[in-house]
Design a protein around this nucleic acid. Sequence first.
DNA 1: GCCAACGTTGGC
DNA 2: GCCAACGTTGGC
Length: 157
Amino acid sequence: MQYWLMKSELDVYNLDHLKADGTEPWDGIRNYEARNMMRDQMKPGDLILYYHSNCKPPHIAGVARVASDPYPDPTQFDSSNHYFDPKSDPNNPRWILVDISYVTTFKETIDRNVLQEDPLLQEMVIFKRNRLSITPVTQQEFERVCEIAGEDSSSFS
DNA sequence: GCCAACGTTGGC
DNA sequence: GCCAACGTTGGC
């Protein structure tokens, strides 16, 4: 079991959208490092801190879960889609994704500056890897975030 | 709205 | 294979 942090723009696709949808393909990732993590490392059941970016303040809103094995992102082959990639070969798809499922919404969001100022969370990869939309989280970091949120992290597994 | 960080593209 | 130009992310 591994832990992740995944960013989504608040006004594009937020945790309420995921709650309404239940399960959703995490499409549109066009960064090789993020793709590789979904393709090579994510396993169904892995837990995800759901992070809202492009808002004031940026924050973690709750928890989601990896809900599928990796498979090709269908939007790369759809010429009408924003994420269409004409260079991707259907016989060797370039972009791979996983589905994610809603787990829970924190009673209070945890703002970025709270994470940044917490002695146990200063080493989070999100602070070191600017612009990377998927980053690994340690079990200790995940449990600390849940502790700050007042959530029992053992109830997710 | 600005702009730093940084990944990608393409000319050479 | 270098690197300048360019585009995007995303905090501030």
